[in-house]
Design a protein around this nucleic acid. Structure first.
Lengths: 189, 189
DNA sequence: AGAATTTGCCTAAAGGTCTTAGGGAGATGC
DNA sequence: GCATCTCCCTAAGACCTTTAGGCAAATTCT
C-alpha cells in the first residue's frame, strides 16, 4: 500500500491547520485521517490518543506564540514592547483561532513542563523591566498582564465586543494605553 | 414504565451539577441519561440536541452569575463594588468550575440575545458610576474590567498561578487594587 | 543483489456517543 | 370507562475512539 509518510509532526501540523479551519473542538482523529486519505487506525502508530493529538497541537501553538513574542520583543522596551507583545497575542488569535483555542487547553503536568509556558512568563517579566516594579509587585503585574491580554482576546474572539460601538480596535488601543499608565504608576499596597 | 418526570429545567440543572463534578467537556446526553436512570433517547423529547443541552447550561450559569452580581452590587459603590463584583466571578468559578466553563461557551446569536449577557454589561457599567469616566472611555473601561476579571479567573483555574509564590489570593487583591487605581486616574487619549 | 528485519498502513472488531423514527403504557380529561 | 395525550421505550443508522493482528514496502545486513 502507498505510504503517505505520516509522522507525529506532520499530524500535529495538519491538526493545527484543521483547528484553524473548523475549530479546535472539531479536531478529531477521524477528520485528520480523512485529510491524509488514510485509515483512522493508521494514525495510532504516531499518536497515543485523541487527547494526545490535541495536547500536541496546544504545545505547537504555545511554541509559535512564544516565538512570535520573542521576535516582537527584540529591540523594544517600555510601552513599545508592551504593545508589540500584546498585539502578538491578539493577532495570533485572529490569524489562528483554532490554534489559539488549543493553547488554552489544560495540559497535563508533564506536557506543561515541556511547554513554552515558561517562556511566556519570562517574556512578560522582560516587558516589566521597562517599568519600575520590584518583587513581589512584578509577579502581580505579570499576572495582571496575562489576565488582560488573554481576557481581552478571549472575550473579543467570543464576539463580546463585536456589535457595539466603539469598535474593538479602538478599545484595544485604549486598554493598552491604560495598562501602560497603570504600570508606570503602580499603587503601593 | 415508571415516569421519572423529566423536564428541560431538571435536565439543565442536572447537567450543570454534572459539569461541576466531571467538567463541562464531559457533559454528555448519555451521562445525563445515566444519571436519571433513563434511556438516552428519552432525553430528546426535552432537548433538541447535545449542543442545546450545553447551551442551556451556559444560559443557566450566566443567569446565576448575574444574580450573584446583582446581589453583590446592591448597596455598594466605588472600590467596594468593584471588589465585591470581581469576587463574585472568582468565587463562582471556584465553587462551580463546570458552570463557569459553560458560561464561556460561544452562544448562537439567538441564545446570546436571551442570555444574561446584557445584565453583566449593565452591572459592569454600574460599577463605573463610582468613577469619573465619560463615554467612550466608559465603554473601554467596561471591556477592560471584563478582560481582567475573566482573564484572571480563567488563568487561575487553568492552574497558571498555582505553583509559584506569591499565592494567587495575594495577587488577586493587588490586581484589584491596581484596577481601582487605574479607574481613578484613567489616562486621557 | 537477495535475505532478514523493521516499519507503516491495512482490515477487523468492540465500545461509546448522537440522533431519528415509531411503539406502548401511564396520566389526564370527558 | 374511554379517548387522548404525554412520556419513556426499543430499534437502528451514523460517526468517533481504540486495540489487535496482518501484509507489504522500506531499510539493513550479508
Amino acid at each position: 500500500m502507498a505510504r503517505v509518510g505520516l509522522t507525529t509532526e506532520r499530524l500535529t501540523q495538519a491538526g493545527a491547520e484543521l483547528a484553524d479551519e473548523v475549530g479546535f473542538e472539531q479536531v478529531t482523529v477521524s477528520a485528520l485521517a480523512r485529510r491524509f486519505d488514510v485509515k483512522v487506525a493508521s494514525l495510532y502508530s504516531h499518536l497515543k490518543s485523541s487527547q494526545d493529538l490535541k495536547s500536541n497541537i496546544a504545545l505547537l501553538a504555545l511554541e509559535e506564540l512564544a516565538d512570535r513574542g520573542a521576535a516582537a520583543l527584540a529591540g523594544r522596551a517600555g510601552k513599545d514592547a508592551l504593545v508589540a507583545f500584546a498585539n502578538v497575542y491578539r493577532d495570533y488569535a485572529r490569524e489562528h483561532p483554532g490554534r489559539y483555542a488549543a493553547a488554552q487547553l489544560r495540559l497535563s503536568p508533564e506536557a506543561a513542563a515541556v511547554s513554552a509556558g515558561g517562556r511566556h512568563a519570562q517574556m512578560t517579566r522582560a516587558i516589566l523591566r521597562g517599568y519600575d516594579l520590584t518583587e513581589p509587585d512584578q509577579t502581580h503585574a505579570v499576572r495582571l498582564l496575562g489576565s488582560v491580554f488573554h481576557g481581552y482576546v478571549s472575550l473579543e474572539m467570543r464576539g463580546g465586543f463585536s456589535h457595539s460601538a466603539p469598535d474593538s480596535q479602538e478599545s484595544w488601543s485604549r486598554v493598552l494605553d491604560a495598562t501602560d499608565a497603570l504600570l508606570r504608576s503602580w499603587p503601593a499596597p
